[in-house]
Nucleic acid binder design. Structure first.
Length: 439
RNA sequence: GCGGCUAUAGUUCAGCGGCAGAACGCCUGACUGUGGCUCAGGAUGUCGUGGGUUCGAUCCCCACUAGCCGCCCCA
């Protein structure tokens, strides 16, 4: 059906009951964030293209080939059209807002979280979409607010461990590394390039290319034959200055004290230019090639890069789509507890041939449903023209109990209620119905 | 952006160069106020889209689109 309009490639509709899981994850995240004193920020879905070019880095894959960018109409004839971009990530937008609203002037540490869609024009596959959803948070502020303290790094990591645990995600791994200051990284890049010259001939084709273009990425290589060679390459930790070393050591000490399990991975490098010092990923098996549930790190120079004051920070972004996939896989393993269903299904019984009586019984059904829903119950309302058998079938699929509302019940004010799990049928006075259904 | 696999009923999937199939789900009835179990009956559909080969294509070929897997990269 080529004429039929479909969701565009890499985007999708989320339907019930799946959306229930999405909401549960979001609610859990909000509740954890609140306990750590984070407030929600909502930034625009599109921004000036320059924000991402300068913030994320013009040479990154994200900026150089994955952004949805277009030219807005010029506001006046003399003006040049503005280049706008659908946000590929949210950290740059949050820092832009931090600068724009002078949040640093409060002198206080800012702890902000966001939940929302991001857009990257990549080839879609499992766990990777062109519109995808991230839950993220940033801790940012002037140096005097303690934003540069390794304690903040450790606290964010400890919070993430708590959040994943509360979500019920089992078997996650925290991998952590330090990429040092931007000067450290430049030094390391040069050292790595140097060290690769004599050995790259023996490595895989991808690595030979990476050795030229982006030596850091060689460390990510998964080809088994290359591993011994990679182990002989210089480690980034040897390029760190004393300050960065001390910072990383303090993060580790705090994680140990809090009992957060982690794996130090001196080969963990991340693709965004703004990361400095601490970088980390929480990974999970069963996500295929996209094994990262979330990633993040420190970005001490980002604010200045986009024209703001010095404002060190640390943050992360977690893939909501990937959390959902992971939890769905886990629930499938546990054969998923069957859903309880709503509290009641009201089955009005009318005569399909008598329009007046049918309308009356349906109206009575709505009045009863209103009463029960206002009492906080989850109620579905049937249709008076259905045969009772049909009402039962419909009710059995979605509700724990059926409430029969026939002419007898309407006249007497005593409803007939049947519980599907016990098959027990009970007569309940209308005044006691809400309480009865609540149990 | 590159490579591999796939596309048939609401869903999961068989199938074959010559009438379109199963299971589950759905609808109706047995049962005019009683579901789940059972029994009887019924409807599933432009066989992803467009083109080509052929007397004839759901099947073979090509292109496109989409999904999955891998690469790149990332959440």
């Amino acid at each position: 059906m080529s004429q039929t309009l479909k969701a565009v490639r890499g985007t999708r509709d989320l339907l019930p009951p799946e959306t229930e899981l999405w909401n549960r994850i979001e609610a859990t995240a909000r509740s954890v964030f609140a306990r750590y004193h984070f407030g929600e920020i909502r930034t625009p879905i599109f921004e000036d293209t320059g924000l991402f070019a300068r913030g994320v880095g013009a040479e990154t894959d994200i900026v150089s080939k994955e952004m949805y960018t277009w030219e807005d109409r010029a506001r006046a004839q003399s003006e040049k059209p503005q280049s706008l971009t659908l946000r590929p990530e949210n950290t740059a937008g949050v820092v832009r807002a931090y600068i724009e609203h002078k949040l640093g002037e409060s002198g206080q540490l800012q702890k902000l979280y966001y939940i929302g869609p991001q857009f990257r024009r990549e080839r879609p596959q499992k766990g990777r979409y062109r519109q995808f959803f991230q839950i993220g948070a940033e801790v940012i502020g002037p140096q005097s607010s303690g934003s540069e303290s390794p304690l903040r790094d450790a606290e964010v990591l400890e919070m993430l461990a708590t959040l994943l645990d509360e979500l019920g995600i089992t078997g996650w791994t925290l991998q952590i590394n330090s990429v040092g200051s931007s000067a450290d990284r430049e030094r390391y890049n040069a050292a790595l390039r140097e060290a690769l010259i004599p050995v790259k001939e023996k490595m895989c084709a991808d690595c030979q290319r990476r050795a030229e273009l982006n030596p850091l990425r060689v460390l990510d290589c998964k080809v088994p034959e290359d591993q011994p060679i990679i182990e002989t390459l210089p480690k980034i930790v040897d390029s760190l200055d004393q300050e960065s070393k001390d910072h990383f050591a303090a993060v580790i000490t705090a994680l140990d004290a809090a009992g957060v399990p982690y794996t130090r991975n001196h080969r963990l490098v991340r693709g965004l230019d703004y990361y400095t010092r601490t970088t980390f990923e929480f990974t999970h098996g069963g996500l295929g090639a996209q094994n990262a549930l979330l990633g993040g790190g420190r970005y001490d120079g980002l604010s200045e890069n986009i024209g703001g004051p010095k404002a060190p920070g640390i943050g992360f972004a977690m893939g909501l789509d990937r959390l959902v996939l992971t939890l769905q896989a886990q629930e499938a393993d546990q054969k998923s507890a069957s859903p309880q269903g709503i509290d009641g299904y009201i089955a009005p019984m009318g005569n399909a041939k008598d329009a007046e009586k049918l309308a009356a019984i349906n109206a009575a059904g709505l009045a009863l449903a209103r009463e029960l829903r206002r009492a906080g119950l989850r109620i579905e309302l049937g249709e008076g023209s259905f045969r009772l058998k049909k009402s039962f079938e419909a009710a059995d699929k979605c509700a724990r109990r059926i409430v029969i509302l026939g002419e007898d019940e309407l006249a007497s004010g005593i409803l007939t209620v049947k519980d599907f799990s016990t098959s027990v049928q009970t007569k309940v006075p209308r005044a006691e119905l809400a309480e009865f259904l609540r149990n």
